[in-house]
Structure formats: C-alpha cells, structure tokens
C-alpha cells in the first residue's frame, strides 16, 4: 500500500524578480515499510521536498500539485488538522543538529518540550517519556541535564533522531542524518536508524548526498538534479544498471569507482537550462534535448528515467 503519494508537485520561490524553481514536476510514491532515498547534489531541492511534505514552507512559496498522505491531500488540509499529523504521524529529523538544537536548553528539556507541545502531558510524564526515547537511541538518560555542546556530533545526531521518533511516526523524513560524521560514527547512525525504522515497521524518506548510506539503507532511490527527479529505481538497479547519464556520472565520481570527474556545475534553479536540465553537461545530448523537456519514462527493467535516450520499450544504452 502506498502511504504517501506525491503528484505533480511544484515548489517555486519568488525572490525579487527571480523565480527559484526548487521542485518541478515531482511524482513520488512511498510504500508501507519502505525506505526511499532522495539523492542529489547540494542545492538540487532535496530539503525543500522534505519540507513540502511536512507542510513547513515559508510564505514566499508558490506550491502546486498534490501530496496524498493516507489518501488525504496535505496541501488542502486546514492547519488544525495538519498539526495532528506534522511531527506526530510524520516525523522529521532536520538537517544540521548543531543549528537545530537550542544551545541554552538542556537536551532533556528540549525533548520534553516536544511532548508537552503535542500532548497535554505533565512535566513528570514528559520526563519519563524523554528518558525512554533517549535510551532507545543509545544515550544514557542520566545525561538529560546536559547541554548540546557537551555532546559529540554523533550524539547530537542521536538526539535529533530521538526527537524525530518521539511519537513513533509512521513516516520519518531524515534530512542528511550522517553529514559531517566520520566513517565509524556514520555507520553507527546508519545502523541505529535502519534498526529503528525496520523494527517499528515505519516508512522513511532518507535525504542524503551520500551514496554509501543510500546503499546500506534504502529499498528504492530517487535521483534529483536541478529540482527534478531524473531517475527512480530500486537500489540494485541504480547501482548495477544506472540509466540516466547524470546517474552514471555521479556513480563514476565515487572514490571507489575511480573518481572520474566531468566539468561543469549544477545549474542555478532560477534560470535552469532549457529542455533537459542536464544537457549542457551531457555527452549524449541531442538536438531535442536542448528544446524539449524529457518526460519520465518506464524502462523494461522497471527503472523510471527522464531522458530522451530511452523510448519506453527499448533501452538504447
């Protein structure tokens, strides 16, 4: 069953006379018990997608399309209804724990606040709950009185996970949960998250630019480029049979795949290239790529790809 279904989502920001097209024609389904990875370079629109699902976007935002959660379109629900979903039924682990945690509040107080905000709970009750979830993420509840700066980067990330999981959500959105961590700490966070999500039969959207982490955790992967999903496939297909030229370039750039580099940068989202947004960097670019916007197409191996090299029935490369 699908828990979340995003249809034709578009998120534009107006800033002066520029329009930043942060998300464009996004279609994505998240199934029950599924971990789906959103990968792509910094600035391609991953966090915006996460915030759109959480209905947490700022006022200068123009948002179109539908985000069905258990059949209800979040974009047309009233705020009162959203408040019962946001943070409870859909949890989020925000990017960058150092910025997300309040430096002058003890971590115990910060987590207890989450409980008291959502459920009328006594101080004592909130404290008990806090101790419980700290234990769940491997932090000694006796450290509840300590402040964020007294914890290492990995520990802070565990605290963020505790807050995101506070109400045992059905869907968890984790935004770059391993960014800036050393390999050992990264592995411990990956294991913690995977075990929690799997053991509680949750679904998760994992936002990351780290393909290692994606490989260790995800069932399916959506590759984003310049505000769009350009390839959507099982993790096995992505790794063994990538289809989109950008996905191939991305995989080839990994340290264990030879660190091959291609010139150029990801385009600006206020003036993305015409046609296929990857065409200025693509070695396969054809005339139509400059003019027309490629649609998402299902290939025979079950991968969906946004590229004119594929005609639906037969793969050309």
């Amino acid at each position: 069953m699908s828990l979340l279904e995003i249809k034709g989502l578009r998120v534009f920001f107006r800033s002066g006379d520029r329009t930043i097209k942060a998300n464009n024609s996004i279609d994505l389904e998240v199934m029950d018990n599924e971990i789906i990875g959103i990968i792509g370079e910094t600035g391609c629109g991953k966090s915006i997608l996460g915030r759109a699902i959480m209905t947490l976007l700022s006022d200068n935002t123009e948002i179109n399309g539908k985000i069905f959660y258990k059949g209800e379109d979040l974009l047309s629900l009233p705020e009162s209804k959203l408040r019962t979903i946001r943070g409870k039924s859909i949890g989020i682990i925000l990017q960058n724990p150092s910025a997300a945690l309040n430096p002058v509040l003890s971590i115990g107080d910060q987590i207890a606040e989450v409980f008291q905000y959502h459920e009328k709970m006594s101080k004592q009750e909130a404290k008990m709950k806090t101790a419980g979830i700290l234990k769940m993420v491997g932090i000694d509840p006796n450290r509840m009185q300590e402040f964020p700066h007294q914890f290492s980067g990995g520990m802070k990330q565990r605290i963020m996970i505790a807050m995101g999981m506070a109400f045992s959500p059905e869907l968890l959105i984790a935004d770059e949960p391993t960014k800036g961590l050393d390999p050992e700490t990264k592995d411990s966070i990956v294991n913690l998250l995977r075990n929690l999500v799997r053991s509680k039969n949750m679904s998760m959207i994992l936002i990351t630019h780290d393909l290692d982490v994606t490989e260790k955790m995800c069932d399916r992967v959506a590759v984003m480029y310049a505000g769009e999903i350009i390839e959507l496939a099982s993790i096995n297909n992505i790794l063994a049979a990538p289809r989109h030229p950008y996905t191939k370039v991305l995989l080839g750039s990994l340290p264990n795949k030879g660190l091959r580099s291609v010139p150029g940068e990801s385009p600006s989202l206020s003036s993305p290239p015409s046609g296929c947004r990857f065409h200025p960097r693509c070695v396969h670019a054809m005339d139509e790529c400059k003019k027309d916007h490629p649609p998402m197409l299902l290939t025979e191996i079950g991968t969906e790809v946004r590229c004119f090299l594929y005609k639906g029935d037969q793969d050309q490369i």
Partner: peptide, 14 residues
C-alpha cells in the same frame, strides 16, 4: 573534500 558532493569532490581531487 569531506563536506563536498561526490561529483564536486572528484573535480577538486582531479
């Protein structure tokens, strides 16, 4: 390069 995206990392290392 530890904070950079893979593709950018490969450009810088090259």
């Amino acid at each position: 390069t530890s904070m950079l995206d893979p593709l950018v990392q490969s450009q810088i290392l090259n």
